[in-house]
Design a protein around this nucleic acid. Sequence first.
DNA 1: AATGATACTCGGC
DNA 2: TTACGGCCGAGTATCATT
Length: 359
Amino acid sequence: MGVILHVDMDAFYASVEAQRRGLEGEPLVVGVYSGRTEDSGAVSTCSYEAREIGIHAAMPIKTAKKKADNSDKEVSFVPMDKEYYDSFSDRIQEEILQERAEKIEKASIDEFYIELKTENYKQAENVAKEIQASIKEEFEVTCSIGVGPNKLVAKIASDRDKPEGLTKVKPEEVQEFMYGLEISDIHGIGDRTEEKLSERGIESVQELAEADPALLVREFGEKQGLKLREKARGEDDSEVEESQQKQVTRITTLEENSRNSSKIKQVFPELASDIIEKLEEENMDYGSVQLIVIDTEIQMHTRSTSLKTRVRNNETLKEKGEKLLEEFLEASNSTIRRVGLRASDLKKRKGQKSMEQFF
DNA sequence: AATGATACTCGGC
DNA sequence: TTACGGCCGAGTATCATT
């Protein structure tokens, strides 16, 4: 396997909006507005300059505006335009990354894994620098890149130095690199796992890497236990490959809080048809339907149901969603603020060519 | 007891 | 003083299967 790069765009939505509006280097906040009241909504992401005055993702827009008022800087607030960022991301992939990659994987709207042909880390570093320079020149946004022997190490490396960072970890440096991390820096180790490890006296990456495999297997099972130890050693044999979308969600904020099911159901047709439209684009069927509910305390609840066979059907989605909503309202006394539907357990439909195969 | 499938929650952006 | 979106993928809990 060649050298792996993890390319991670810096504050992507905010950088794209800054470029679009000529606001580079200024505090800028990208928000999602629910339309309920003036400024009702939350921060999606913000520029590094906005972070300096205490604004961060997931913060209510009103709170962010308070921070902005208390600062001497002029802060721009702009609404999220996901479609625009999607096409921006695709263009970076097609115009800069594709041609330099032996293999490429789009991991999210702002993250890519690239496998290079070369085994030479100096060469790989040069490719990474070239990618950073080209993206900056042609798109006027920046990225951070991690260079490593596999996806796990490359991803952690890209996180170490942001924005516009470049972190290279050669195979002989992997151990030193991994031992310098906190256990929670390792992707896939959450609070729960961290606590369980701590109870067993494992608190550092080195301790996990050198832990008794039998103990880990006892605590976490054969598969997961051994995987944990491998991760701490910086080992990962997963391939760089095109990944399929796993779920499609559409969620909306109700005009008024409610627990009147017929009132709430009125938003379902639009949610369902938006989801089906997306599935048609992707030529995918769904095998599972989820209801997502956010109550007046901003607590999220989900209920789901599996289908016997995969379909791409608007009515099924709507009806399963309605049924789940009724069951939820019956069992809970919470009042609903936002409601959504999700289709998951997705699979490409076979026996029907998608458009790109004609080219 | 281990594994896989399903249901639900959490965190990033 | 509080204030609160719309997505996504991954983590974790629980249950069925073997």
